[in-house]
Design a binder for these strands. Structure first.
Lengths: 224, 224
DNA sequence: AGGTGTTTGAAATGTACGTTTGAATATCCG
DNA sequence: CGGATATTCAAACGTACATTTCAAACACCT
């Protein structure tokens, strides 16, 4: 069955889990090639460098995800009247869960990797994602903008990044959180359940009323 | 004036900025001692190890912050009727901004460090914080519980961790976000502004209506 | 001033890392 | 089959890291 597996795939499979759990910089090629049961030099032979391996690991998911998201976004944009924010956010659910067909636990792994990409110092990853898929993400921003016309662009910018943080951190700590939740509330936790819990939180946060006072009531400064 | 500065303080000052910007694991003692203009061996002499230096850097802020938070929480708990959620969250603002008197940009540095503590793999830091200050944080959870009596305990658990993720991720990416915001919206971004933008987002997310449907309408599984 | 304990300094230790090399092996195709 | 190409392998390279060592410099005190 699984007799002969491609070396490149063995590397990608080993790397994605290690990267997701330990971060990019704290995962060594020696760990990866050891888990993958391939020679140390194989990474540089097949991918060129560690940096390019990181991109390849993410690309496996991004290609699938972004194509699906692009479809969904275009579909919603074609509708004449603006869409409900909850509907717009819900569009992520199916494409994300379909990543489970790329690999076991693909959804969780991808979201963890995304988190690592933003918190580890990986400038090349931010550039890589924005350069390749910025066009798709712009559609999403446009959709949210249409469903929240009262939100200033700068406020929207911040809230979308707050939301990215919410998702990414939650997924990064998923294991620990799930354990606690199961122990304290005896509820079983899967990735889909977490996503369903996230949606109302995110929708409410993004659409929160804009504070009328742009300056806080009391300032507190050091020095001067 | 600043003629003779304590070696320990020179190390702490240099370390906190480098840790905040580059993360704990990606900052070397050589960088720190070079910026601090002290000998490489000084870190191990004064702090024992890099791990203990990390804790010392955080401790400088945690000691001050947690004492102040404890006061505020106790004060709110003493009030008979439950407090408004926004009020409870707003309690963080002043103690956080007072960290600017611990050091220049203390608030920003501390929050970035906190973010690093949760995203870098620093198990000892999670333990360190919980062990030393878990009692204070429990008061906060109680306050939120009182102000959102309609929220089931499990839902509250998830939403508080969502919120932690929002804050921590935002602070970890603070620099990059601030740059973009300044470029795209030509608005100056300081840490207080970010905190003031966070509050309504967090309050709305935590208090979001609880979805009546506990099971999502469509499932999607890989394999079976 | 002189002796004691604390702090600094330059150098070395051992380990781990990403990457490169060149020979050995496997795979492919006429 | 046989020669060319693609892949694997063990070993080494150069670099960077945290930590240790021990002698020199310093600070403090009677």
């Amino acid at each position: 069955m699984v007799a002969k597996q491609n070396t490149q795939q063995k590397i990608l499979d080993a790397a994605q889990s290690l990267f997701a759990e330990t971060g990019f910089n704290d995962t060594s090629l020696r760990q990866i090639t050891s888990v993958a049961e391939v020679n140390l030099a194989a990474v540089n032979y097949h991918f060129g460098s560690k940096k390019e391996l990181i991109q390849a690991v993410l690309q496996r998911y991004l290609r699938v995800l972004m194509a699906r998201l692009d479809q969904e976004f275009s579909r919603l944009l074609a509708v004449q009247q603006p869409n409900n924010l909850t509907q717009v956010l819900a569009v992520f659910v199916k494409p994300l869960l379909e990543l489970n067909s790329v690999h076991n636990n693909g959804t969780r792994i991808f979201l963890q990797l995304l988190g690592r990409g933003y918190t580890d110092v990986q400038g090349h990853l931010r550039w890589f994602i924005n350069h390749n898929y910025g066009r798709v993400l712009d559609k999403f921003v446009l959709l949210v903008q249409q469903s929240c016309p009262q939100l200033p662009a700068s406020e929207l910018f911040w809230r979308l990044h707050f939301s990215l943080g919410t998702v990414v951190f939650t997924m990064a700590s998923n294991e620990a959180l799930a354990e606690i939740a199961e122990a304290d509330f005896s509820e079983e936790v899967d990735i889909e359940g977490v996503i369903q819990r996230l949606l109302p939180y995110l929708a409410a946060g993004i659409a929160a009323p804009v504070s009328t006072r742009s300056q806080p009531q009391q300032q507190l400064r050091s020095g001067t």
